[in-house]
Nucleic acid binder design. Structure first.
Length: 492
RNA sequence: CGGGGUGUAGCGUAGCCCGGUAUCGCGCCACAUUUGGGAUGUGGAGGUCGUAGGUUCGAAUCCUGCCACCCCGACCA
């Protein structure tokens, strides 16, 4: 594999695209804006799914599946939601093709087969799900409903990028129904916390939890909470959202329940989701000029072992040892790959596994057999050490944990050193334009000011961090009073 | 969707201006020698030149439509 190496410092987007392709994560398909997720990339997504799914189930959620298509009349029921997504919907209008009489061998849409009602390919599933929930909910005893679905959705984006923004993407969407506002808000926050925990402990990406401004809020929500990560190039990435939907969908779809007091009340709702965009976060947070760097908890292959030998008799001995070692590691629950391809040199293999982000590489040759040692290299720091073969499984286990922690620590360190608290417009401009990263600043709370700042600097309010305390200040742009700082950044 | 650019073997490319059936490197296959940081030699396979039309005796090359991708905007998870 001859790789045209582009450094992050030279062209970050090109570096990103090359990495996605070269590390075998995904590629463009014949369909505009849609990607093929390749087995190695999909394996990482599956690990993410497993971690999230476990957390969802631990908090009482169940998986279900709702249709890909939403009849237009249902889609438009919740006005704000419909309006928000209208511009990026794929629409099915016909259900049949036929042979083109003017051009045999070609197909055409059969004009006779026009659907009476258009079907919208879901950009999100609130509509179809709330239409269904109406039939599922009669009494307070039917609540809460705690459902998640793993699905694909389509948003007809003008400009796409592998994993970060594709016309079709994979995600999970949770949709819950509750008897009270308090319970729904509690659910919204709970899921936000689950996302944050997942991001930090599994992806090793530190995130800021916060609330979106009205401008950035999910269409149809009363409040949108989010986790925001900071990428290596100083741009922010929204990594997950959790919405408190109030009674908007319940009212739009007439979903009521009978209280203990025998009163009809509208149901309270939440929805929350993360997508394959997290793959982009993973890449842009940890990887380097040599390729992907995977946190051990998500690496499909945690350890690769490379046997080194010249002669046939040496090969046999080394391979025996390698297989024994692999077995030993697997017993500890470590996923191991033995790279015994004999047409490639060790150097080539090192480079290839580095490109693919395998956290730990072990090399063993005749010299090690004699000394009862093995070479261990870690992907994150590139450090190599020769260690004893005795107890090497424990050594590796510890190393994997260390790498996981180190990746988080590095990312946190980067974020902390790229988060700027500013109090004047000039400081703000300097931070956004030159220093890059998160900028914490006072803002007068109006959509107009937010919009103006976006026009002037391309920076948006990523969120109002939940950790921010009330403090008196003045808006960096208008000078009007403000009681809380917002977090600004240029974003993906 | 607007502006700019690109599309030639799995990948990266030359050829296009000035029309004559495609160049080179990597990879791939076979054999041999190799293997502790991207091996070497010899032989070989692989191409509807993005796609559909047009001009021409003849098109990768000229013209038109379409498709996809990249960069910059607007939109967005």
């Amino acid at each position: 594999m001859e790789i045209k190496k582009v450094k992050r410092s030279e062209d970050y987007s090109l570096w990103y695209n090359n990495l996605v392709k070269n590390a075998d994560l995904a590629e463009h398909s014949a369909v505009k804006g849609c990607m093929v997720i390749k087995p190695y990339g999909y394996a990482i997504w599956e690990k993410m799914q497993a971690e999230l799914d476990r957390r969802f189930k631990e908090t009482g959620h169940q998986n279900a599946y709702f249709p890909l298509f939403v009849p237009k009349s249902l889609f438009e029921a919740e006005e704000k939601n419909a309006e928000g997504f209208a511009k990026e919907c794929a629409v099915v209008t016909h259900y049949r093709l036929k042979t083109n009489p003017d051009d045999k061998g070609k197909l055409m849409v059969d004009p006779e087969a026009k659907l009476e009602e258009e079907l919208i390919v879901r950009p999100t599933s609130e509509a179809i799900i709330w239409n269904t929930y109406r039939d599922w909910i009669q009494s307070y005893r039917d609540l809460p409903i705690l459902i998640n679905q793993w699905a694909n959705v389509v948003r007809w984006e003008m400009r796409t990028r592998l994993f970060l923004r594709t016309a079709e993407f994979l995600w999970q969407e949770g949709h819950t129904a509750h008897a009270t506002k308090e319970e729904a808000i509690e659910e919204t926050i709970q899921m936000l916390n689950i996302y944050a925990d997942f991001a930090e402990n599994i992806l090793a990406v530190p995130v800021v939890k916060g609330v979106k401004t009205e401008n950035e809020r999910f269409a149809g929500a009363d409040d949108t909470y989010c986790i925001e990560g900071l990428m290596q190039d100083g741009k922010a990435l929204q990594m997950g959202t959790s919405h408190f939907l109030g009674q908007n969908f319940a009212k739009a779809f007439n979903v009521k329940y009978l209280t203990k007091e025998n009163k009809q009340e509208y149901v309270w709702a939440t929805s929350w989701g993360v997508s394959t965009r997290l793959m982009g976060a993973l890449i842009m947070c940890h990887s380097d000029d040599d390729g992907l760097v995977l946190p051990p908890k998500l690496a499909p292959i945690q350890v690769v072992i490379i046997p080194i030998a010249r002669k046939d008799d040496e090969k046999a001995l080394v391979l025996d040892k390698v297989n024994e070692l692999a077995k030993q590691l697997k017993e500890k629950g470590i996923s191991v790959k033995v790279d015994s391809r004999d047409n490639l040199t060790p150097g080539y293999k090192y480079a290839e596994w580095e490109l693919k982000g395998v956290p730990v590489r072990m090399a063993i040759g005749p010299r090690d057999l004699q000394n009862e040692t093995i070479e261990i290299a870690r992907r994150d720091t590139k450090e190599k050490q020769i260690v004893s073969l005795h107890g090497v499984d424990d050594t590796v286990n510890k190393l994997l944990l260390q790498i996981q922690d180190n990746l988080y620590a590095q990312a946190l360190q980067y974020r902390n050193s790229h988060t700027w608290e500013v109090n004047t417009w000039d400081e703000f401009l300097d931070a956004i334009e030159n220093k890059t990263g998160f900028v914490s600043a006072h803002w007068d709370g109006t959509g107009e000011t937010e919009e103006k700042i976006k026009e002037l600097t391309k920076a948006t309010i990523r969120c109002i961090p939940m950790a921010n305390k009330e403090e008196t200040g003045t808006c960096i742009l208008t000078g009007k009073p403000s009681n809380k700082r917002a977090l600004f950044a240029k974003a993906y």
